[in-house]
């Protein structure tokens, strides 16, 4: 994927982009931290695989070239509001239940919350958020999408196939395989 670096454009994997701290285009730092925290709890390894850079990069990709699984799921672009509103809803709901911000949750607490959000609407999960007003996806649907994104980046790469001891057998290898640093 092409990332802006200084005055130029450089091709990097999301993991490389994360390591090199490439600036985000669509998400702010708080959104990135929340995304990393939640996705890594759902799919361990997603954070280091560069999930946040992958999603951030794709949020500004043209629709016909977009690689997010969301394009399969009857959500029309642009996709940014889908993620940002859900991350906000996640924070609202977590604060209501645990009286602390998401990043302060213990391992047991985030696991408990995920167990709820994958099945039903957690307490306090809004249907809309204000300023700007955005529709919030249902929690189980957001869980499904984020989990799928995280599996893409964590397991759908040349390196991850190697780690699972299965052959990739590419006819044409991805030019920049999304691989986790080993």
């Amino acid at each position: 994927m092409a990332f802006l670096l200084g005055d130029g454009v450089i091709n990097l994997t999301p993991a490389e982009a994360k390591t090199r701290k490439i600036p985000f285009r669509s998400l702010d730092q708080k959104q990135v931290s929340t995304l990393d925290f939640l996705s890594d709890a759902i799919v361990p390894g997603a954070k280091s695989a560069g999930l946040s850079h992958f999603i951030d990069h794709q949020l500004s990709a043209p629709h016909e070239d977009n690689l997010l699984i969301l394009r399969y799921l009857r959500i029309n672009p642009p996709f940014k509001d889908f993620y940002t509103s859900a991350l906000k809803a996640f924070e609202i709901s977590v604060r209501l239940k645990y009286n602390k911000p998401p990043l302060d949750l213990s391992e047991a607490e985030i696991s408990e919350f995920i167990s709820i959000m994958r099945q039903k609407k957690p307490i306090g999960w809004p249907e809309f958020i204000e300023e700007p007003k955005q529709e919030v996806p249902p929690a189980p649907f957001f869980y499904f999408v984020l989990r799928s994104d995280a599996i893409d980046v964590t397991y759908g790469t040349v390196n991850s196939f190697d780690n699972m001891d299965i052959p990739y057998m590419a006819h044409i290898e991805p030019a920049h395989p999304w691989e986790s640093p080993s």
Partner: peptide, 14 residues
Amino acid sequence: LTSSQIHARRLKWG
């Protein structure tokens, strides 16, 4: 036609 389930999404309706 890159061998990747991620890249494959480009072939679907856009």
